[in-house]
Design a protein around this nucleic acid. Structure first.
Lengths: 236, 236
DNA sequence: CTTCATTATTGACGGAGCGTCAAAAAAATC
DNA sequence: GATTTTTTTGACGCTCCGTCAATAATGAAG
């Protein structure tokens, strides 16, 4: 169980190689650019062998998404360990989310493709649940910080308003913004040259709206972000 | 120019018929479920005739989106005419946006498909710009209300923060939320049974965060929404 | 080392579905 | 009624997915 036979090694390496070849195809040419015959040609194995690894084209796309999905959890976990008050930890997680979008833009392209029912339908439950679990882990890290904030009385949520609802709002805001930013042309036209900065401002406003202490004018956001960068996200 | 020949009438009617047949195919079976041969069979015209109307499959999808895109502008325009303070007009527009999502969920499915570069690439500039213009009109209606708010001193934006940036935030929040809600399964799991209500709460929080007067605890949201419903959105 | 069984690889093939285009039909013009 | 123009048709070519019988490689046993 411990070590692998040469054959097993070869299979693992080949799987990685297939994905390495497929990734730029999808990134550069989108869903229709991913071509099973071309992959087979590029990795110098037959099409049948590719199908031994992935049951269909769509399965390759979700496998590419899986490759990145754990990274976000890892970044969120590190960010949540930031030493500071609850709000500052929340900011740290936002910074992690921004970093993830900047460093792994491919992931969101894969996700957009997988949003189509007719694509996702063809993918395996197994990989679907890996991605789903990563997402849920991220959400629950954020929810944890929100609960800490409530516990420490930095934040008082309205009646009936659960921490999960706040997470949903933050998640919507950021994912919506990054999705619009990717489509892009509209933003230029509106004079928004740094969407990331604007998202940060909106997160601050949203948290202020819930009166999550300390309010945004009570700390120096630039200094805070530098500290976050240095203390929990330095090696990215 | 004024009236149409019988032939021209027939062509227009046929175009509508094609879209009528295509719509449920896309809605029910997604991008892959749209099949040119099936359409031809269902409308009882040959495939070649379909291609006289639409240069490709993707063009049909964008035409379906175009069918709905003007409706949102219309709803936004009506909502912006709500008699009240700037913040209440903003709420009216949010209500219009919510109504649009509820009544025209298809539109967002088409939009998700068209977000894929490999799909949008194949569509005509003409239809792309129709949709783009509608979106821009909506944005500028919202921006107008924001500017009114600034002019009437209900709202003071931070330095460097343009009305367009606020629009971007609201747009991100709502489109992100509705997109997540459509994917759905995650929300149930988080105990969010009414995403629309949660979005409303977040919009309120965001506007509060910018200190847009009157703050949310200074008015009765339920009464306000009823008035909006009655006065500008009644016939929907 | 040889034989046999098991597993892995191959690529020709079937089939689905998009988009085309030469021929046929219909409409318009003279 | 003849001729030109426009419209319609559906068989066809093409691309690309996914399969599977045949072949090759690997491993086990004698």
């Amino acid at each position: 169980m411990a070590t692998l036979t040469p054959k097993q090694r070869e299979i693992l390496e080949r799987e990685a190689k297939i994905l390495d070849v497929a990734r730029p195809m999808v990134v550069r040419e989108g869903y229709h650019g991913l071509n099973m015959d071309k992959i087979a040609e590029k990795v110098s194995y037959s099409k049948g062998t590719i199908y031994n690894h992935f049951s269909c084209k769509e399965e390759i796309i979700i496998a590419l998404a899986v490759q990145n999905s754990a990274k976000r959890v890892q970044l969120f976990q590190k960010a949540a360990q930031f030493k500071g008050c609850s709000r500052h930890r929340m900011i740290a997680i936002s910074a992690a989310a921004e970093l993830f979008v900047r460093n792994y833009p491919d992931f969101f392209q894969f996700e957009r493709i997988l949003q189509l029912d007719s694509v996702r339908e063809k993918t395996s439950e197994k990989r679907q649940s890996i991605i789903h679990n990563c997402e849920m882990q991220c959400m629950s890290i954020v929810a944890g910080v929100v609960r800490d904030a409530v516990a420490s009385e930095d934040l008082e949520l309205p009646k009936q308003f659960t921490p999960e609802k706040l997470v949903f709002g933050l998640w919507s805001l950021t994912s919506g913004a990054y999705s619009i930013a990717a489509a892009s042309d509209a933003l230029q036209q509106m004079g928004i040259d740094d969407p990331f900065e604007t998202v940060r401002d909106h997160i601050a406003a949203l948290l202020d709206g819930f009166n999550w202490q300390p309010i945004s004018d009570q700390y120096d956001i630039d200094k805070l972000l530098k500290r976050i960068q240095k203390e929990v996200l330095n090696d990215e």
